[in-house]
Structures are given as structure tokens and as C-alpha cells.
Simulated scan of single mutants.
Amino acid sequence: MPVPSPVFDPPFNILRASHAVLDVTNLEASRAFYETTIGLHVEDDDGQTVYLRGSEEHQHHSLVLRQGTAAACHRLGFRVGDEDDLDRAAAFLAASGIIYAFVERPFQGRTLHFSDPFGFAIELYATMEKRPHLLRRYDLYKGCHPQRLDHFNVFAAEVQDTVDFYARLGFRLTEYAEEDGEAGRIAAAWMHRKGNVHDFAITNGRGPRLHHFAYWVPGPMNILHLCDVMASSGYLANMERGPGRHGISNAFFLYVRDPDGHRLELYSSDYQTMDPDHEPLRWSLRDPRRQTLWGAPAPRSWFEQGSGFAGQDVREPLFVADVTIAD
């Protein structure tokens, strides 16, 4: 299927993936997991919502946990360049027939909410309250020392159309997995705005659902340390996949599940992609190095389980990709 061409003059300027907003069923348990085990820093907690961030981040939050009756992904947040970009985004959405609304959100400036044509709930903002840099506050480090939120990965029922939509918004393709043959279809795509492998990854599957969100950590040893922490603190069963190294993105990774089953990736060791002539890397679905450079396939849960978006019906994918699944 066609690989989208880069768009260097999008209708508005998205800078990067910024924050995830998750509904959880036990706020206290979720806070303990992300703060003590993973190592994120709590900035605010009003009893109904907890705001956390990584040690490198100046922004007030990159993860928002909301007390809810059911686990779900509420919103995925992206930062835009300035206030004018919010108005340009509103104009683009209106011209595209997409319903949107400007809302007020704690600790953020003017915020634009919309659901894209495929059911992914998005919020855009230009300004957020700042907090002191904690990068050198090693006395506060816990867990795997997460530095910053890096990307989102979603299950999309209509992969090609979703890729094309976000390419129009300036997301540039870095790597993709495709069926072999002349009529091969794209089964997954990694797209970026900030100049590394991805801010937004789009994977074929029942959607719209959040597959995972990811924090960057300093190095592989942080990930190995987290394995020891989880194995000795009651979270052994929450380690779903890894540690390992992806062929795609070159990332050293670990995937874990929080108390509600939301999937979190901790990773390091990807690469830069900001040059305008950067060529996307194609992977065959049959290449065993794609999932893990060392050849180990992903478990079945990896392909079947994800977090639904609140209020959105989940659709079956347009096709079923022929992927290798671990026994």
C-alpha cells in the first residue's frame, strides 16, 4: 500500500507527544505503581486525579490518572507550537467536518478537544505550567528513572487511512511493517514530529484502542533494574514482554501492565530522524528481527489486548495481518 510523502507545511504545527490521560479503577493503587515502582514524580493529587511527570520534563504532567468506574484511555495529548496553531487546528478540523471544542484543563492553557475520524480522542494545547527540572535530583530517583514521555502506540481498524490522516498533519514516517508482494498492505507504521523514531505509532488491530504509551529511560541497565524491582515487589505478573531489543526502532524495551492492564513501555537506544531526506525503513511481516532483533516473537496478548477509548465502539480491522505469535 502507498507510503505517504512527507508534509513539511502542515495545517498546524504539532511539536510532540505530550501526555496520556487514563481512567483507572483504583487511584491509590495506580499512583503507587507509577510513583514508587516505575519512578514517575507526582506533581498534584486532588483525590480524584493524579498528575505525574518524568525527571527531565519541565511541564507539569505527562501522565494524568483519573478515578473512574472502568479502565479506559481518556485522551492522548500533543503540544502545538503556539496559540495560533490552536486556531489553525480548529479551522482545519472545521473544514474536515470534525467536531471539536475548546475546553479548560487544570495546569494547561487553552486546550482543544476532538476525536479524529477513526475514534482516537486527542487534545492539543500550546502552554502548560512549568515545574523545576529534576534531572539532577538523583536523591528523588526511583524505579527505572523515567526521563520523559516519548510516544503513543494505538490499534487502528483502518491503518492506511489513519496513517494518511496523520501524514497530512505533518507526522513523518520512519519505519513500517508491510505484507510481502505487490499488493502488500501496511500493517504498522511509526511516525514522528520531534525528530526521533516516533511520537505516534499505528498498528493494525481492533480499534480504536491504546496499545501502549512509552517513557524514555537513560539506558538498558535502568530497564534491567526495573525487572528486579517488579519481581521483588509483587508485580512479577505485570511484566508482559521483554526485556529485549526491537529490530524496529532499535529500542531496548520492557513492556509492563499497570494495575488496570494499561500497557506501558520503558525504552532507550532509539535514533534521530529529523533530516528532511530521512528514508523510511521497510520491514517484512515475516522478518523475525522486526518484533525482536534477537528473533523472539511477541505473546498473544501483545496483538489482542489494549485500552479502549472512553465512549468509543471498537471495530474489527479491515484485514488480519499474518504475524508470528509466541506459543
Rank of each mutant, 00 (worst) to 15 (best):
T203P: 01
Y176V: 10
M230Y: 10
C144Y: 04
D277I: 02
F252A: 09
F252T: 08
F309H: 04
H133F: 14
H211P: 08
E104Y: 05
A188V: 03
L93D: 01
D287G: 10
R245L: 05
A326Y: 11
S18K: 10
G234L: 05
A326P: 02
P276F: 13
G205V: 02
G261I: 00
V50M: 04
Q67G: 12
F107E: 11
H113W: 00
S269E: 14
A90L: 13
C144I: 06
A101W: 01
E123A: 05
A296N: 09
D45E: 07
P2M: 13
E56S: 15
Q147H: 06
E279L: 15
L293H: 14
Q147A: 11
F303P: 00
M221Y: 06
S249M: 06
F152V: 11
H246W: 05
D313R: 15
D23N: 11
G184C: 12
T292M: 13
H74A: 12
A17I: 02
P218M: 08
A231V: 07
Y215V: 07
V50D: 04
L266A: 10
F252I: 12
R75S: 11
T174E: 01
E265T: 03
F33K: 02
T127G: 05
R172Q: 06
N26Q: 01
L86I: 13
F120H: 08
V50I: 08
Y141G: 03
L112S: 01
W283R: 06
E28A: 15
T69L: 12
N204A: 07
R286V: 13
L63N: 10
N26W: 00
T69N: 14
F78C: 06
G54M: 05
I38R: 05
D180W: 08
V159D: 04
A321H: 02
A188K: 02
S62A: 10
T324Q: 12
V229P: 04
A126Y: 00
G39R: 01
M239Q: 05
Y141P: 00
I38Y: 06
D199W: 07
R148K: 07
G170P: 07
R136I: 10
L40N: 06
G143A: 02
I122Q: 01
A71F: 09
F213W: 13
L124M: 10
D228Q: 13
I248G: 01
P220Q: 09
